[in-house]
Design a protein around this nucleic acid. Sequence first.
DNA 1: ATATGATGCCC
DNA 2: CTTTTGG
DNA 3: CCAAAAGGGGCATCATAT
Length: 668
Amino acid sequence: MTKFFRRIIKFGTPADLNSAVYLASNTVAPAYECVELGIGDTLLIKAISEAYGSNKATVKDSVQKLGDLGLVARSCKSKQRTLGFAAKPKPLTLVRVIGAFREIAAISGSSSGKWKVDIIKKLLVGVQDSTETKFIIRGLQGKLRIGLAQSTVLVALAHALTMTIPSTVQVDDDGNDDNNDEEEEEEKDDGDDNSNEDPIVKAMMDESLTVEKTLEAHANMIRKVYSEVPSYDALLDAALKVPLVKLNEACQFQPGIPVEPMLAKPTKSIQEVLKRLNGQEFTCEYKYDGERAQIHKTPDGTLKVFSRNLLETSNKYPEVSNYVQEAAEAAIANQKEEKKEKKDDDDDDDGDGEFTGRPVDSYVLDTEVVAFDRVKGHLVPFQILSTRKKTQESGESATVQVIVQAFDLMYLNGKSLLCKSFKERRRLLHKHFAPVEGKFQFAKSLDAVEDGDTIELENFLDAAVKGQCEGLMVKTIVDIYEPSRRSLNWLKLKKDYLDGCGDSFDLVPLGAYFGRGKRTGVYGAYLLGCYDEETEEFQSVCKIGTGFSDEDLKSLSASLNEHKLEGGKSSSYNVAKSLEPDVWFDSVQVWEIKAADLSKSSTHRGALGKLEEGRGIGLRFPRFERIREDKKPSQATNSDQVLEMYYNQDSVKGQGGGDDYDDDDDGI
DNA sequence: ATATGATGCCC
DNA sequence: CTTTTGG
DNA sequence: CCAAAAGGGGCATCATAT
């Protein structure tokens, strides 16, 4: 990929490079622009069959065999009779292909499917060879399957730009008086980019390093810039103007554009957490079960909210902006109080905007938005939060109320805090924002030092779970905010990760679905049921597609193939039509399945009707643990146990308020 | 008009 | 979201 | 250790079928 990019840098146009990068990363626009293709397998199958004159059933059939729509399209293409007199079409260019993708994304409304298919067909008949067909289809499907994705594209790009410097790059020595005026934060550069201090810049310029190390340093620069401004447009524009060492000066974190959020690594035990912390000072925070929200305020007063995947959710949570502003004002009120009490002692000068008497003017907060019952004053499960409309005219009058649980601050009054320690970021967070009843709170936390004592941690984890949370987030006090997947420096500890904790089920495989991609040739997922003793039927409670080793996938496929029901579904299987597997099995095995939660389900049938008329129970985050050789299908977890486990959840226990019947006004 | 299916995006 | 795998 | 690629439940939304 590096070689390819180098050729384009040398011989192509900026538009060629831009198109190549977008195609290679299989995206059409920066995430925060919320551009959707609106293309799924159904439309692709339609396009393939129409373009190559095969019928849809045949196409679907070969999907099973080949396990990949791209391969299917390729084989259709090469089977197609080529007419001797037909001239080869003009070659498709990068610009043309990404342009077609973007055209597709722009179509909506009535008959949009037809127009989209038309564009795809034009692409398909315009290819030079069947390999192009394969990748056009895969690109539209969003699964390139070339063993390379975002971060690899960035590294390749970095290497290419290092080895082949674009002719447009200006190598001026007097630095930043030409292009640096566009940043909104008129004041000083944040400590972030004092070039001499930045270890990445240092490494890039260190001539004593090996070529490999130098390339790595350049890649780190590109990764850092992209994680601060996740837009290939912005990245490439900058990279074509300034040398890589100055890239972060030309393109950096600013309110209004989401930064890739810091993520956490799952951990399997308290021991593992302590081992990883290795004696460092750390804090534990409740891990709330809501939706990640990065809240931005730009100096012009605009407030924006972004999701974990950088899509804008401002319209989904219109009240969140108000809540945060109220929190900022509450902090001012508190400051005034303090000021009165202790007369001015001015060692308070930490250069962060200090006491101004006015709320902060720009900031970026990291928070979790959680559904909240204002009347009863407690948190509400994720399933209810998810019923929020995508656009709410007024948040405060919405059926589902929310509360902001804040846990980090990445930007404040014109300065990036990404390079500050968590301790410092949190100090500023608590200084410039204050809790507002029912609207804005700080994530509940416990500070500690590793001293071999696990009891305190265990208790805190228990308390978190009882308090409607998923578990804990564990963070060291000294770490900076490292955006993106670059390093999973935070740890998450959930009850169901722990061996012997969390809900475990013994379920019967009722059927299976053909695997795709690297699971071609084996079943990729199975349908599982619990046993209902009254009706003597198996009721579906989940599908399962994770937790298997490659070996498991092979052996399970082989052993269950001995028990296929050739006549179709057994009459004792209670399964919704939309879940119909490709193959049905006799009930012969029992599998141990772990799950995080149970939820009311309109598709699954566990304990059907016992909880709510017409609905059953399904599992959240199910994964395969092992085969239970010791159990017969009739000894599988039964539906009464499933029901009991549903009621046993802390999130459900907390709700009832003495009412035997379940609260029907909650929407689930 | 209303029901169903497809798609994308939260977790 | 969880999980496994190959480099 | 990390990136990539398998796969999950369930919701709102939009297009199309009835």
